[in-house]
Design a protein around this nucleic acid. Structure first.
Lengths: 194, 194
DNA sequence: CGAATTTCCTAAACCAGTTCATTTTTATTT
DNA sequence: AAATAAAAATGAACTGGTTTAGGAAATTCG
């Protein structure tokens, strides 16, 4: 069924009864977006969290000098949003852009507050996936501190080759925290060696 | 009472009944630690999360070149631990060290699993504070990407002067992601200006 | 298909922040 | 209070990564 992927995702962390599943389903909304469309933009409050059924996204910030910094990627079976904007319901600072024609399942922020009250197991689900995101973010911060640009590149290619092959290189460079020019230099160094 | 600070903290996010409070209290353990003592060390599984009643701590990593990188500080009314080690119950990679003689309230990881089952409101509490930590971490990552060393220093001094004045400068430099020597340079530049 | 736009690559000059080596200052211990 | 250890400052030489400016490929779309 249409919502099987997201239900399967949730069931990895909590066991929902059939009843709970039917309570939950009305809160899901499918949304299609075309390449280069934005689902979140600075200045507007982020109203839902999005689960990627098909396609690819990036969340990025444009700084005062006009440079882009990618905070997150999402492909199939990942979530994406402007997290601060969503939980505090304040204007977003990030762009979230489709890198390909994509399909999402969205959950409205207010709806989520409702079902968290109605289905306590969903509190547990939220708690667990947030804890995991936090652990992930901490690893990334440490990786940025302790590793060189080239080491971070290698690490990403190994861990997330599925993403690396699908996103533009300028997006990858801005995720890893260096310039596109330097990414070229790194890749060039590597092809010379082999 | 001994546990008032932590109960007050929890009550900012959820309303506990007197019953729930008495259910919860047996899970708290007070612990005193001396300056330079470690409450978490690499290789050992982190067994509790700690709420700081009095004192100051830092969580840091030592990289392959022997350099230290501070992931977090905690003073009164903050929490600290090696988060990954705690939630996955795997060996820690961080040191968590007391920067002053301190007093903690600790919650054992397994005990927490128990009361999360017994007191559903605590699931909500955990969910909310984890969400906030995640939002905080994302801001920090973006700040590292978009700002210069001096801007990050200024920002920290403004937002967390209480911490900045209490922790050694090498710890602050390693939190902000640059060398102690460079921190000296920044401070020197500033005192010349004024 | 062909034109326009977006993405990717190259190379030299440059700079923010590091490294190394030494000194001064401040805490801690006896 | 002296002795020792820990933390902070200084300055010169250096380097990892940026900037600027240009050209070559690859996509997109009428």
């Amino acid at each position: 069924m249409e919502y099987d992927p997201i239900l399967e995702y949730i069931s990895r962390y909590v066991d929902l009864t059939d009843d709970e599943i039917s309570q939950l389903i009305p809160f899901f909304k499918t949304k299609k977006v075309k390449k280069r469309q934005f689902i979140v933009q600075p200045g507007f409050v982020c109203k839902h969290k999005s689960y990627v059924v098909k396609g690819a996204f990036r969340a990025y910030l444009v700084d005062s000098q006009g440079k882009e910094h990618t905070l997150a990627f999402a492909i199939e079976d990942w979530w994406i949003s402007d997290y601060s904007s969503l939980i505090y319901q304040e204007p977003a600072t990030l762009f979230v852009e489709a890198l390909e024609d994509s399909v999402l399942i969205q959950i409205d922020f207010k709806d989520e507050q409702t079902f968290l009250r109605e289905i306590p197991k969903m509190e547990k689900f939220e708690r667990i996936i947030t804890q995991r995101s936090l652990a992930f973010q901490q690893k990334r911060l440490l990786s940025n501190f302790t590793k060189t640009a080239e080491e971070r590149y290698d690490e990403f290619i190994n861990k997330y080759s599925a993403i690396a092959n699908r996103v533009p290189q300028y997006a990858l460079a801005s995720y890893l925290g260096f310039s596109t020019e330097y990414l070229s230099k790194i890749r060039n160094r590597k092809t010379l060696k082999s």
